[in-house]
């Protein structure tokens, strides 16, 4: 594919000095600017690649395809497309939250391009699957999430727009993205949410031979320490680091700790 097209489609940014390439993948709900606390300082020593998944941030919304992005493999394809467009190899790929799993899928697909993975607050499956697995949520919780998203993301007029426009109009977007942080198109957001919260990637973990650092927040209501432990245990080359932090967005709230760990991991290899 045309690399200019990919760069524009995913709003790819390449900056910083250094031999080693760090690629940062944002999580569900926001965009690449989530990483700026970390990249602001790391760009002095590393070449940094950040991007927005199609449908997020300032990506090209017209490239959104509800079939492709209904599963995390579609988002992983965004990553491999970018790696190929920039012709990068030996990259350290850092993913937050759902992007931990997306990054893993990309690493399995193009192992020569991804030499290290950093998973920040990962979860391969958000639902409880007793007795072996505690994802943290029941199906009702996640249904409620989708309902809340409906109520929060969707302008009420837009709620009826697809019907008024007719199904033949296809996945066109009647409104412009406001461009503000974290604003997301309702269809895109729900598609991403469903792909994130209802899919089970536990069985894929053993297929990922890439050396992986799992950064786990001590208190994280989305991905508990148990989940972080599970991920590490099932990765062939996984290393768990539990940080003394609280919350899920530790790359924003405790970015110094996160940066230190990434630096140590990237330079160790």
């Amino acid at each position: 594919m045309d690399d200019v097209f990919i760069r524009q489609r995913n709003n790819v940014k390449v900056f910083g000095n250094g031999e080693r390439v760090l690629m940062f993948a944002h999580g569900f709900g926001c965009d690449q600017t989530m990483w700026r606390f970390v990249t602001d300082t790391m760009q002095r020593d590393y070449r940094i690649v950040t991007f927005d998944y199609v449908g997020s941030g300032e990506s090209d919304l017209s490239a959104f395809n509800s079939t492709r992005y209904a599963t995390l493999e579609g988002y992983a394809d965004d990553i491999t497309d970018i790696l190929e467009a920039l012709n990068l190899t030996g990259v350290t790929l850092i993913g937050h939250s759902v992007s931990s799993v997306i990054g893993m899928l990309a690493a399995i697909k193009v192992p020569e391009r991804v030499s290290q993975l950093v998973m920040v607050c990962p979860s391969p499956y958000y639902l409880n699957d007793p007795p072996e697995y505690e994802g943290g949520f029941e199906r009702d919780d996640l249904e409620e999430l989708i309902d809340l998203m409906d109520k929060n993301y969707i302008g009420w007029a837009n709620y009826l727009a697809p019907l008024v426009m007719g199904s033949r109009a296809g996945p066109q977007f009647v409104h412009e993205l406001s461009g503000s942080f974290c604003s997301t198109d309702p269809l895109v957001a729900k598609t991403f949410a469903k792909a994130t919260f209802f899919s089970d990637y536990r069985s894929v973990l053993p297929n990922c031979t890439t050396p992986t650092l799992v950064l786990q927040s001590r208190i994280d209501s989305l991905a508990s320490v148990k989940v972080g432990q599970y991920v590490t245990d099932h990765l062939p080359d996984g290393h768990l680091k539990i940080l003394d932090t609280e919350g899920h967005c530790i790359h924003m709230t405790d970015h110094n700790q996160v940066e230190t760990e990434i630096r140590a991991f990237a330079s160790a290899r």
């Binding site: 709900g29 926001c30 943290g136 996640l142 409620e144 809340l148 929060n152 989305l222």
Partner: peptide
């Protein structure tokens, strides 16, 4: 729990 997710993924950032 749904509000927790919304907080972590949307409100907090």
């Amino acid at each position: 729990l749904a509000s927790c997710i919304l907080f972590e993924s949307y409100i907090a950032p």
